[in-house]
């Protein structure tokens, strides 16, 4: 479903990577590896369409994502380095606002349920400013629980999570793949994702 051809990335004068190509089908996980500064985040941002590649093409269902625009975004869930949550809003408000902006309706019960599943029960009415780093990450991850998007692009999703949350997230990703979803992620922690058909890609090797 996702096909990447001959991707090249330039950062200023430096060539971060070139000739990167792979395909990813339903139910498959792309495990992106590489040293710090190898261009993992940049590659993920290219897959989302945030950063245009210097050369090469990214095809989703056979069409260039640049031509698809909103159609592609409607099937994409991207979780970057930053949590994209508002410190002044509560977890509940954050989740519901992000759902509304993504063009989905999420009623209060469903939102509370999603927050309970990420382990934030009892914190849903506390401004995110007062939450710990790991709890903020959980608020950001709660989007994965309710959004039904085909392609998940996760940049270091396990950072700041405790071991319990790490295994919970691995299960969530496993479940997503089992339903026929696709996922691309980077991580420096060795995490076992259950029942995943894994493709590995090493940048800067």
């Amino acid at each position: 479903m996702l096909k990447v051809l001959n991707l090249e990335c330039l950062r200023g004068e430096r060539r971060l990577f070139h000739g990167v190509g792979f395909g990813l089908d339903a139910g498959e996980l792309l495990y992106l590896q590489g040293k710090n500064g190898a261009g993992k985040t940049t590659l993920l941002r290219m897959l989302c369409g945030l950063t245009p590649p210097a050369a090469g093409e990214i095809l989703w269902r056979g069409e260039n994502i640049r031509n698809l625009g909103g159609e592609f975004h409607a099937e994409l869930c991207y979780l970057g380095h930053q949590n994209a949550i508002k410190e002044d809003l509560t977890p509940l408000e954050n989740l519901r606002a992000s759902a509304r902006l993504a063009g989905e309706t999420l009623d209060e019960d469903a939102a509370l349920d999603a927050l309970e599943r990420v382990g934030l029960a009892g914190r849903e009415d506390l401004a995110c400013r007062y939450l710990s780093q790991g709890q903020k990450r959980r608020v950001a991850l709660s989007r994965l629980v309710h959004e039904r998007r085909a392609l998940w692009i996760l940049d270091e999703p396990f950072v700041a999570l405790d071991t319990q949350a790490v295994s919970w997230l691995a299960d969530i990703i496993g479940g997503h793949l089992q339903r026929g979803g696709l996922a691309a992620l980077t991580t420096h922690q060795p995490v076992e994702i259950p029942s995943a058909r894994v493709r590995e890609l090493r940048l800067g090797a």
């Binding site: 989302c48 945030l50 409607a74 380095h81 930053q82 949590n83 994209a84 902006l101 993504a102 063009g103």
Partner: peptide, 15 residues
């Protein structure tokens, strides 16, 4: 921009 919300808005399924 600094908390990453702008990225998410740019990836929303509308212009």
């Amino acid at each position: 921009f600094y908390d990453g919300a702008l990225e998410q808005l740019a990836l929303a399924p509308y212009p």
